[in-house]
């Protein structure tokens, strides 16, 4: 297994921004369009963080034009350029899958004071 760990180490990012479940994050994504490269923003609530090492992923959920949108992002991927914490959330669960069934005010996470 040591060989695998050594390979994975080359691709791990030195530093991952500090955030926790329930936070609203703004993620800068590198998108390639033909030869041009641009940055796309995706803002949503962090509802799950899974995996370890190179396989660590985050799931962001947002409501876009009254339709729920979720994106699963690989944390160590070079596509994920930067992560900003917009708002801290006050939650009790590690996975906020219950938000999928809620609408309106109940589908919101309380702000951490």
């Amino acid at each position: 297994m040591d060989t695998i760990k050594k390979i994975e180490k080359e691709f791990l990012k030195d530093r991952i921004e500090d955030f926790s479940i329930g936070d609203t994050l703004k993620v800068h994504l590198k998108i390639k369009e033909g030869t041009r490269e641009r940055t796309q923003l995706f803002m949503g609530t962090l509802i799950a963080r899974k995996g370890t090492g190179l396989n660590e992923t985050i799931t962001l959920r947002k409501i876009s034009y009254s339709e729920g949108v979720e994106r699963v992002l690989i944390l160590h991927s070079p596509m994920v350029e930067k992560i900003e914490v917009v708002r801290k959330g006050q939650v009790r669960q590690a996975k906020l899958y219950y938000l999928r069934d809620k609408v309106g005010k109940k589908a919101k996470v309380k702000e951490k004071k």
Binding site: K32, L54, I74, S77
Partner: peptide, 17 residues
Amino acid sequence: IGMTRIFKENVTIPITV
């Protein structure tokens, strides 16, 4: 040896070592 993933040009590639 085992499997993992690597990144090439922002794309993740599943690999066997």
